[in-house]
Amino acid sequence: MAASTHHADMLRNFRFERVLNEDAITSSLVLLGSIPTASHTNGTEQRAPAIARIERGALPPALSSGDLVAALRDTQLVLSNDIYASLHGWLAPSEDRPDVKIGVIFPATDVHIRKYSAQRYYMVRETPALYERIVKPYIAAFPPARTQWVVDILEGRAEADKVLHSDPAYVLLPDIKWDLATIASLYLVAIAKDGSIRSLRDLRKHHLGMLRSIRRESARVARQRWGLGRGALRMYVHYQPSYYHFHVHVVNVEHTAPTGMSVGQAHLLDDIISLLESDVDDGPSVFERMTLTYALGEQHGLFEPLRAAQEAEED
């Protein structure tokens, strides 16, 4: 069965349970449901949790005004006031212009469900001591199965045809969130091959060669494949990251929609390189010594222990 047919069947069998989140800014909706598994016992359907993230597809930048008018199937006036007018429009079906982009996580774990649920965020200050006592054991407790999909990419068993650049230290490929067509929302990811680098905290001065190569080769690939010149890319590392295997996000600087570019969570690759370049040659690295301040959602597994630890310190 073709992969596209398989995933279409998955969506057709998606049984809605509840809305996890909705975002008017990105025009996205995250749904929790279930999808049948491959196994059946005594005719009873077995289902597993699934998450579907649905967002509006981007209009092609080459769509001229004439093409847009031709693409409209219908319009409805909402408001007209002097020189201003607002209309609703419906586009005719098109293979080149999908209406929505759908991301599916199946089977979804409780960690996935918490991550994509609407939640309040709070600022936390993670000292080196709190990292050693709370965060590091939390990261170490994650089972290898959680990042098996990363290993499959690195070992060539998945997405091998998508790899844009392969290096002894990392691979560069499109991020699953990119539609592979809209250059303004270009989104790549560089994944380190060294699994011992779990997060920003594990970076050392001897990793500078890898980080500089990611910066250089990402710019080269973007220039050669998509004509993006110097300064057209925003490269950053998340802390806390969405998965604990070191990776660098490479995004078109014009792409303002991605969540995770907020102050505290996103650390610019240029700044990381600069800090490591000025770091000491011996002793703990700068990222071992720093206190990191960032927003943490109340659904995150670290939220309760970090909040309790910080409240205890304040008392």
Score class of each variant (00 low, 15 high):
Ala8Ser: 15
Leu11Gln: 04
Asn13Thr: 06
Val19Pro: 12
Leu20His: 06
Glu22Asn: 07
Asp23Trp: 05
Asp23Arg: 12
Ile25Arg: 13
Thr26Asn: 10
Thr26Gly: 09
Thr37Leu: 11
Ser39Val: 15
Thr44Trp: 07
Leu72Thr: 12
Thr75Pro: 08
Ser80Lys: 08
Ser86Gln: 11
Leu91Tyr: 03
Glu95Pro: 10
Ile105Lys: 05
Phe106His: 14
Pro107Gln: 11
Ala108Arg: 06
Ser117Val: 12
Ala118Gly: 10
Arg120Pro: 05
Met123Ile: 05
Glu126Pro: 06
Arg133Tyr: 02
Ile134Thr: 12
Ile139Ala: 09
Ala141Lys: 10
Ala145Phe: 01
Trp149Met: 05
Trp149Gly: 00
Val151Ala: 10
Val151Cys: 12
Leu154Met: 11
Asp161Arg: 15
Lys162Leu: 13
His165Cys: 00
Ser166Arg: 09
Ser166Lys: 11
Ala169Glu: 15
Pro174Trp: 06
Asp175Leu: 07
Lys177Arg: 13
Leu186Trp: 09
Leu186Glu: 04
Tyr187Gln: 11
Ala192Trp: 00
Lys193Asn: 11
Ile197Trp: 02
Ser199Leu: 01
Leu200Thr: 02
Gly209Glu: 08
Leu211Pro: 09
Leu211Ile: 08
Arg216Asn: 09
Glu217Ile: 04
Arg220Ala: 06
Ala222Cys: 14
Arg223Lys: 12
Trp226His: 15
Trp226Glu: 03
Trp226Asn: 04
Leu228Lys: 03
Gly229His: 02
Arg234Ile: 05
Pro241Asp: 00
Pro241Gln: 03
Phe246Glu: 01
His255Trp: 03
Ala257Lys: 05
Thr259Tyr: 08
Gly264Trp: 03
Leu269Val: 02
Asp270Leu: 00
Asp271Ser: 12
Ile273Val: 13
Glu277Ile: 02
Thr291Phe: 00
Ala295His: 10
Leu296Val: 08
Glu298Asp: 12
Gln310Thr: 14
Ala312Gly: 11
Asp315Ile: 15
